[in-house]
Design a protein around this nucleic acid. Structure first.
Lengths: 144, 144
DNA sequence: AGAGACTACATGCATGTGCATTCAATGCAA
DNA sequence: TTGCATTGAATGCACATGCATGTAGTCTCT
């Protein structure tokens, strides 16, 4: 009847539940904090960060398909996310000269500034939730 | 100008990205596999599993608020998820006698059966994606 | 050059989620 | 008992996501 997991399976399940809990806590708190203080979602921040890393200094910009594998989003979700960032004035979309199907996404001044402002809070949330402590219950805000 | 992370922060970021990647791979594959082979989402399966653990043998059922902390969903999302499971005939909702605001959720025979059928695949996915291997690119199906 | 397969991104649509609200039941105070 | 705050769960709504599809540009083969 196989009602029980083998020890190996039980270990996997425990690992998975721990991962789920950490993910939920962290992403929930990131969304809340970044959202209410900087108007950014977790994924928006992640995309800004990739853009900073990918073209720091140079203003070249990244292809959408270079962004896609690093943030874990479908192509359509990423397209719309970039649309939101563009509307917010944080990035620009420009046609790619060497392949005119492609889109170059680049940070604006404002985007770079916003990222720099948000980063300390992002790191603070990570240090709060990722240190192996007794889970601080998702909603707890960060003290000013 | 603080453009760089401290080593501690860099470690946190790396840890967070690893967690994000594992979560994306695993939940994506779980949803795909459980969905197409058993008509269950990842969270649906998680709820069934809690119900099995919480009232195995006894047919008592669990309060919604007992379920809520273990699956990482908002109260409203959990309410609707239970609605879907109920409509699919996998659980029953019954008024709670000792507090008539509450709802007792219990597995049906069919729910128990479906869980037992789905569990091996669930464990298989975990063993595929959680073992620290070179990430098998989210979409890769499980061989029959 | 021209036809057809393919690629990069955008968009229509269905769905799952969270927040705010609602409604019923309970607990508590006077 | 009556009145009021609180709790447990359901629901309206806005929104982000994924899948399927559309559209424009590119590549290949002849």
């Amino acid at each position: 009847m196989a009602e029980l997991d083998s020890p190996a399976e039980a270990g996997l399940v425990a690992q998975w539940r721990d991962l789920l809990a950490r993910h939920a806590q962290t992403s929930c708190l990131l969304d809340r904090e970044l959202g209410e203080k900087f108007g950014l979602g977790m994924s928006e921040f992640e995309v800004l960060e990739r853009l900073v890393e990918g073209c720091d200094g140079t203003g070249h910009g990244l292809r959408v398909q270079e962004l896609a594998p690093t943030v874990h989003l479908s192509q359509s979700a990423l397209s719309r996310l970039i649309g939101r960032l563009e509307k917010a004035g944080l990035v620009t979309r420009a046609m790619c000269v060497e392949d005119r199907r492609g889109i170059k996404v680049a940070l604006t001044e404002e985007g770079h500034r916003r990222y720099n402002e948000a980063r300390p809070l992002h790191r603070e949330v990570l240090s709060l939730t990722l240190a192996d402590d007794p889970e601080p219950a998702c909603g707890s805000p960060i003290a000013d």
